[in-house]
Write a protein that binds this DNA or RNA. Structure first.
Length: 415
RNA sequence: GGAAGCGUGGCCGAGUGGUUGAAGGCGCACGACUCGAAAUCGUGUAUGCAGCAAUGUAUCGGAGGUUCGAAUCCUCUCGCUUCCGCCA
């Protein structure tokens, strides 16, 4: 969430960003009015408490004075009138505040998805591709039918070489993130609502929530390791000298994907459960733009080494989530569909998530401020396998193995 | 799941209901000493909110309650540890 004082001082900017992102359901002026009221009440309550405290202090020697006690009781009565409204107001303000999206950077294209700007392009488009699902089924590498039998549509089994390919990709991904100084981690696959909402995801009550929730518990299955990685440092103050903190979390990811039926749902591209290696960075505010470029370059490096043609887009405002100030997507060129498809994304969330979860930095000079967080996909395995099959499979033949994956597949050049 | 114990500042660790936002130590910062360093000594060192500031106020896992006054008492709750049960 944003800082209420920032919102006060930059009201039009905040409103403009919310509008550009496309969800504009919070009345900023009203929010500021609520906070005005909160300040007045808080001041009154503080003054009353000051009176109460000084009167109480007069009775410190164990000599209760009926006169003073009566006065204190009167003050308590006044407090009792203010406090409920004050605490209710604080909750309301926080809830409203959580709904105000992060401000976009000035180099984010305005408009909707159609305004996404291509900022880089790599590789030669292949003209012939192999449909990944037909191919994988023909090799008996994937089983959606039995997946549906045990868990429902969009659940699947991977087997034999494809399951081994997934493992090889993970090993390759781990190697890459280690090379770039990330700490490899495995994480809880469930998080509490506090973490989920602090990351800027829609709450359980929301119609748009994409998460699976555990009945009777304040828990959700994670949609990305970004969730537990953000929560990792909740309520902590990190010394400046320890930043940046770079983590790469591997987890299963669970998404309901409600309402996406019909949008390229075939096969492994959009499923309810997949595995992903996610990069996550906590850094100084003035370093986050630079770090964002670094994460993007790592992602590009991965696709180049896998030799998958791609382009990078700077997502337009209407395509950004609530927490992101700027986001890059890497889309690979699908030779089957003759178009680009999303493979990874990386976002600079500035201080948006960190403020919600109270994650701060203690500067060398002793001052404390909210730090910045960023996240980026290292490798999303199911989708990457789609891209690899499309680019590397030989129709009615074997799957050629990308050079960098050979070490993890017994040195085989085809499987 | 049953029983017991414990949750205090960046960390460790004191804390008879009343100058306790909190002793002491560690760590850290600055200063002195030194050619420099180590050691030593001195000073400082939680966060939120309001305020230009002085300062006020809140916070000792969380939420309620008792009291003129709660880190200290009561209730609930969450987490951790240990023992038992169960189990990859």
């Amino acid at each position: 969430m944003l800082d209420i004082n920032f919102i006060r001082n930059n009201q039009s900017l905040v409103e403009k960003s919310a509008h550009e992102k496309g969800y504009y359901d919070v009345d900023i002026s009203k929010l500021i009015e609520l906070d005005d009221r909160r300040k007045v009440l808080a001041k009154q309550a503080d003054d009353l408490r000051a009176d109460r405290n000084s009167l109480s202090a007069k009775m410190k020697n164990g000599k209760p004075d009926p006169e003073l006690i009566a006065q204190v009781k009167d003050i308590k009565a006044q407090l009792a009138e203010i406090e409920p409204e004050l605490s209710e107001l604080e909750v309301t303000i926080r809830n409203q505040l959580k709904r105000v999206p992060n401000v976009i950077f000035d180099d984010v294209p305005l408009g909707g998805e159609e305004c996404n700007a291509e900022v880089a392009k790599w590789g030669e488009h292949r003209t012939d591709g192999v449909d990944h699902l037909d191919y994988a089924i023909s090799r008996n590498w994937v089983d959606f039918e039995r997946g549906a039998k045990v868990a429902g549509a969009k659940f699947y089994y991977l087997r034999d070489e494809l399951a081994l390919l997934e493992n090889a990709l993970l090993q390759f991904g781990i190697k890459k993130v280690l090379e770039h100084g990330f700490h490899f981690m495995t994480v809880p696959d469930m998080v509490s609502s506090e973490i989920l909402e602090g990351c800027g995801f829609n709450p359980r009550s929301s119609q748009q929530s994409d998460e699976y929730y555990i009945e009777g518990e304040d828990l959700a299955m994670i949609a990305t390791a970004e969730m537990p990685l953000t929560g990792f440092h909740m309520n902590e103050i990190i010394d400046e000298k320890d930043l940046p903190l770079c983590y790469a979390g591997y987890s299963a990811c669970f998404r309901k994907e409600a309402g996406t039926y019909g949008k390229h749902t075939r096969g492994l591209f959009r499923v309810h459960q997949f595995n992903k290696l996610e990069m996550y960075v906590f850094c100084l505010p003035e370093k986050s733009r630079e770090m964002h470029e670094k994460i993007r370059s790592i992602e590009e490096e991965i696709w180049q080494e896998l030799d998958i043609p791609y382009h990078v887009i700077n997502n337009a405002a209407g395509d950004l989530g609530s927490p992101a100030a700027k986001k890059y997507d890497i889309e690979y060129w699908s030779p089957v569909d003759q178009k680009y498809r999303e493979l990874t994304s990386c976002s600079n969330c500035t201080d948006f998530q960190a403020r919600s979860l109270n994650i701060r930095v203690r500067r060398n000079d002793g001052s404390v401020e909210v730090l910045h967080t960023l996240n980026g996909t290292a490798i999303s395995l199911a989708r990457t396998m789609v891209a690899i099959i499309e680019n590397y499979a030989v129709k009615d033949g074997k799957l050629r193995v990308p050079e960098v994956l050979k070490p993890y597949l017994n040195g085989e050049s085809e499987i």
